[in-house]
Amino acid sequence: MNVAGPDYRYHTLVVTVENKSGVLARVAGLFARRGFNIESLAVAPTDDDRFSRLTIVVDLESAPLEQVVKQLDKLVNVVEIRELHPGSAVERELMIVTVEAEPDRRDELVEQLDRAGGKVLSVGADRMMLSLVGPPKRIDEFEDLLRPFGIVELQRTGRVALPVLDEDA
């Protein structure tokens, strides 16, 4: 059942839960007490306000995926679990970041940003606030690119994901 195979260390689960207080604590508590590690977690309501969706990236070195899914499924408030194979999921993450941007380096910074497809959110005297949406790997790479400029503050959302559309969908 571990469709990720040995090549993938992480696996993404898209979990639909009842939109009730305490549900996130139940999920987090389950991971903690069973020794499952979460690499990333994003939570938001769905288009149906009775339900929320969690996108959980699970560290497969901590536990077999099958156990994680089955234990999650036992939570009464968990309605549906979709396993997204890393190769067949569209994954996105948002990063906003404030970087040092002295006037003489600004052009260089904006050029990198344009190439990555990011946006300028705000400009200060010596700093700029940028955003980038993309696959987590691209966010990682852009973060590395920014580091020489001097990162002041950085926040990433954790990834969200949906399955790739079938061609006939």
Partner: peptide, 14 residues
């Protein structure tokens, strides 16, 4: 109570 008993019940309600 629901926090304390979350991991020792099949389910709980407040």
């Amino acid at each position: 109570t629901t926090g304390i008993t979350m991991s020792v019940t099949k389910h709980n309600f407040l």
